[in-house]
Amino acid sequence: MFNEELLTALPGIQSTSSFEDGGEWLTVYTTDWLHLAKKLRKHPDLLFDYLFCLTCVDWKTHLTMVYHLSSTVHRHNIVVKSKLDRDNPEIESVSHIWKTAEFHEREVFELFGVNFLHHPDLRNLILPEDWERYPLRKDYEDPVNMIKL
């Protein structure tokens, strides 16, 4: 039910996004993400103002950005996913829409190598500045600091 409400509230998005089973998942093309994010934040029936989790998953063939959003007004949740190219991952930053995204995107940038376009300050946050390669990718091997058990 919620999906249908959402679809009618987001004209122009249906053609490029698809709902998956389970109800609360929404997949969107990378190019539409910024447009959708603004809609999700501003539309009076949606008002997703609380970004509580932002992360990335490495699927070996591609990366997937995962955004967990909720609304403090309507108390509903949604998860938006976007598929990224693994060799050249790029997506628009949403740090000007949800300010917490600035930190979360920096974390994803250093651990997965995702380039967030128009991010105000994209630098390493947790890792040292000269760290090479991306630790949370599946093909990452570190012979010195072994973490595989």
């Binding site: 630790p135 949370l136 058990l149």
Partner: peptide, 17 residues
Amino acid sequence: PHLGYVHRSIEKMCESL
């Protein structure tokens, strides 16, 4: 803030637990 002085990559570790 500069973070990471006690970063142990717990998320990566958990992938093999």
